[in-house]
Amino acid sequence: MTPTLPPPDDKTSDASMSRRNFLRGAAAFGGLTALAASLAPLRQLEDFSSSEEFLQKYYKELTPDDMTKVISRIEREVQKEYGIRPHVRDLKPMDGVEFVYCLNLTRCIGCRKCVHACVNENNQSRNPEIQYIRVLKMPHGSMDVEKGDHTYEAKSVPEKGFFYMPVQCQQCQNPPCVKVCPVNATWQEKDGITVIDYDWCIGCRYCEAACPYWARRFNFTKPEIPKERLNPNMAYLGNRPRKQGVMEKCHFCIQRTRAGKYPACLEVCPVGARKFGNILDPESEVSYIMREKRVFIQLKEEMGTSPRFFYYFDK
């Protein structure tokens, strides 16, 4: 009887599994694991979550067919994230329409209802908080915004000795934010609204730095919008949910105003201080205000930005 030899393979593997080899292998494995783990945050990079979005063309180059696909992708993504089927539209500027906003400083009482109506309408992040409108509390007798305080808390407004000046995107005719954008992700449309394509923005924040009105906001984290407060009436260039790492700002409620409606901040104002309309229509309330009222400023007029947002007084 011949003794059976163990298979040669076993013998070699046994021989190679010295302590040194085992430790080498383990070290290599550990190193690779650590490398893989260190790359794990890449999985959270939502920019690449959808190849469709990654390959999407520039907004102005999209054909109507492309846009239909883009919109259905956005509707799908929103439904997946929030469980609500939104109604997303790509509303175009109307012919013969140029929007102008007028704000009556005599009337504003500083209640900040416009701030929150805006957040609710435009699906801004609630945590961290992103708000398009800041209400400055200013001492009587001065128009110096340096004296403004936007963090006031009051049981009862208006407070004696102060007036209130809400500031939001001024929709400049000569917008510095558009000039600095390195990828043309923000531009001025013919109805006067400066829009942002959230799918094209690279989040460099140059526009935020260029804006003299502190009107632009950056999504440092993934925006948090409670499902029950999501507004399903959305526009591509308007209030569709943003993602981490893109800019956003007031767009005169594009999803409402390009459908002929008033902006949300105007409708909620309890004192009627906010007026909005088509300046090319001589019958509109903004044309009337320009003709009849003491329209006193375009904020920081000396910057040469020529805002479409006017502040005026009643008496």
Binding site: I109, C111, K113, V115, R134, Y152, E153, S156, V157
Partner: peptide, 8 residues
């Protein structure tokens, strides 16, 4: 007069 909404 009325209560103001919370500050940012």
């Amino acid at each position: 007069t009325r209560e103001s909404a919370p500050a940012p």
